[in-house]
């Protein structure tokens, strides 16, 4: 055999674009489409116990009742009450696309207005006010991105700003 047949195989390094693909399902799919196409939050109020589910899901968190047949779709928001908030000083990795959010940003735990017996709960950015003016119980309203920028993700809402009430 000649030497040429025994040449080492050159190492191959592939650099691939990396992103995460999550199946959101029928119920969350409608939630995402409504946010993207109509700029509104759609949730489900449990038919059995009145618990508000935002994002919508077929089985109730509290009573385990099924809401698969004829679910009680309701619009929630666009206003919410701030239940808690924090201003973050450390970087955060968004595991949807592995992007890194750096610097100072305020995240609120929002009790979103709902016709059910409880509020819908969402985490989201609070903007339009400096952190020293924020307080629990403050009323805020969702500000959506322009329709051509929306992707069916939570970032379709730019942030929530105080209503001034």
């Amino acid at each position: 055999m000649s030497d040429t047949t025994h040449k080492p195989v050159p190492p191959t390094r592939l650099r691939t674009y990396f992103s995460m693909d999550y199946p959101v399902g029928l119920f969350n799919g409608r939630f995402a489409r409504e946010m993207r196409d109509n700029g509104r939050l759609i949730g489900i109020v449990c038919r059995h116990c009145g618990f508000s589910m935002l994002p919508p899901q077929a089985v109730c968190t509290v009573c385990h009742g099924e809401n698969i047949k004829d679910p009680n779709w309701v619009e929630m928001g666009p206003e919410a009450t701030v239940a808690g908030f924090m201003t973050f000083n450390m970087p955060f990795i968004d595991t949807n696309d592995l992007s890194v959010q750096k610097g100072h940003y305020t995240v609120g735990q929002l009790m979103v207005d709902s016709p059910g017996r409880t509020s819908g709960f969402l985490w989201h950015f609070i903007g339009g006010a400096d952190a020293t003016q924020l307080r629990n119980g403050m009323r805020v309203r969702a500000i959506y991105r322009p329709i051509d920028e929306r992707k069916g993700l939570m970032t379709d809402i730019l942030h929530w700003v105080p209503t001034g009430e």
Binding site: Y22, V24, N28, F31, A32, L54, P55, M86, F88, M90, P91, F92, I93, D94, T95, N96, V100, Q101, V107, L122, W123, H124, F125, L153, M154, T155
Partner: peptide, 25 residues
């Protein structure tokens, strides 16, 4: 990247894919 945020991202693997993973801290 310091370890803290990397672990936080791992911890967030248990929360809701659509509404919480992106900013649940």
């Amino acid at each position: 990247m310091p370890r803290g945020p990397f672990l936080q991202a791992g911890i967030s693997s248990g929360v809701h894919a659509l509404t919480e993973k992106w900013c649940a801290i």
